[in-house]
Design a protein around this nucleic acid. Sequence first.
RNA 1: GGGGCGGUAGUUCAACUUGGUUAGAGCACCGGCCUGUCACGCCGGAAGUUGCGGGUUCGAGUCCCGUCCGCCCCGCCA
Length: 590
Amino acid sequence: MLRTHTCGELNERNVGAEATLCGWVWKSRDLGGVLFVDLRDRYGFTQLVVDPAVDKELHEAASKLKGEDVVRVAGEVRLRPEEQRRDDVPTGAVELHVRKLEVLARAKTPPFNLAEEELEVHEDLRLEYRYLDLRRPHMQRNLAVRHRAVKAIREYLSARGFVEIETPNLMRSTPEGARDYLVPSRLHRGRFYALPQSPQMYKQLLMAAGVDRYFQIARCFRDEDQRADRQPEFTQLDLEMSFAEEEDVFDVTEGVFAASFREGIGVELEVPWPRLTWREAMSRYGRDKPDTRFGLEFADVTELFKNSKFLERGHKYAEGAAFALKVPGGLTRKQLGDVEQAVTAEKFPGVMSFTVGGNGEIKGPALKHFPGGFGKQLLKYTKGEEGDGILVCAGEFGHAANVLGTARLKVADVLDIKKEKGFNFLWVTDFPLFERDPATGEPVPSHHPFTSPRLEDADKLEAAPFDVTSRAYDVTVNGVELGSGSVRIHDAALQRRVFKAFGYSDEEIEARFGFFLRALEYGTPPHAGIAPGLDRWVMVMRGERSIRDVIAFPKTLRASSPMDGSPAPVAREQLDELGLTLKDEGPEGK
RNA sequence: GGGGCGGUAGUUCAACUUGGUUAGAGCACCGGCCUGUCACGCCGGAAGUUGCGGGUUCGAGUCCCGUCCGCCCCGCCA
């Protein structure tokens, strides 16, 4: 190695020793005589001292160093003068008095300032020069935490008998679900592979293969519109267990998260995690991924709206419900305006706003729509007190809950009560197998078709699909959905019925899933699993707002890469070889 | 597909509300001074197709239209 130590390593114990360091010039302070240079690498930074009185030539060379030059320096480790020691960095007590300097690589002036700790640079610029962006200590830490988390995951699962197995990245396209990324085949003209949206069927086939306990740090691809927490390619911890039920998956998942938080950021998670049924989550928080770091729970006031028009409007197919959200101390006019704006973005139904006046009198413009006893009842349900605000939303169950859920999050936002109060992990269970299309009333699957219904509900699959509860579960933390899983169907006949209930014809079932059903006919054990998204996982660990900050080379929201210019046009010959012609060249032409 | 925010010096921002002479500041960069700094300090300098195209106007960074790029949200993500 060109170095004897890293830049984060030297401390009091090395005083008097000779050391050779390699690293990037970070910040330098030229006092005219003595020159200080902070030399940085992945491990930290060390202050170099160059004294012209010791070596004039060396000092001259050192004073020409610029930010991001890569150098190798050798010298003696000395204690800093007493009053100049820093205890906020591990190397703060010492400095290296340079005797030899070698420039390994010169750097052009970087396009943005790497000495700034904050990430506040236009993101397209950060992505274009990602290798510079990643040099910053903050990003180095993100990469390191991710590595430690993955290492802990592998160790934890391996110790519990899980086997890591790779599954194909070139597979058959399945038009349902997310849009596939397609890969044309050269050897089979006109045919295409798809990149996996998840290894779902493969891992179930591994259960059929007797693997018993499988996991994979799996790359997944979905060609859908992006968000701060969604990338075209992302990583899941995919795992599956045979002869297992919900409790077994919960136990392993809690264990693997606890291990990763311990190893990754030194945080001890409390397990087991609380559980909420989907219905409870919706009725109390208006989300299937509730942020429980603050209260603001709903009161169910459906009873007050019985026989009212509010429950009939906009939900001719589904069950109506009404919820109330008490805001202790109320909201200012501006805060209420912000909340209302957040809610109207979701269109209907609206949120009614009331306030509690002196001697328990309810006030609000919507009051005129209700009979006299309404106010008193509302107060009773919400336990409102003088000065409180009460927001109410009534309509179809899911919509009303969701709209008030949006209001709840905005209220927490404007009152600034979210903060960072640890990690509130939560299981959400008992999802309905089908949701209702609000426009048509038709059943639409709320999970993938391999999710087992509760066996006692299986009879209702055809007659009353909305009454079927699935054995699906989500793991969420602080309002972020980290992953979902389920007990799977392992019986071919039941799987066939569910495919049909999902609306597939016999022909479609055979063409797309025939091989899979066949596997189920050869003795597939009961099995269950889960697939938490690793990017969000690490994002939450690091308190980042975007998964882009925990991915080394992410794409922009438009799925492009400013650094390498992908996606890019390809040569005509490449298309010819694949038997492809373009209908048009796209907006960029060529 | 829809809505919102943004794009001004290498960079982070100001000037835009109310159109008006030469578009400013911090950091970075270049030059000079400075021997214990750690956001070193002081003096000076260079640095701009105001994303791009069009329009209105005597005059546009500023107003209007279009377009590109980035970010945030809705739809979408079985």
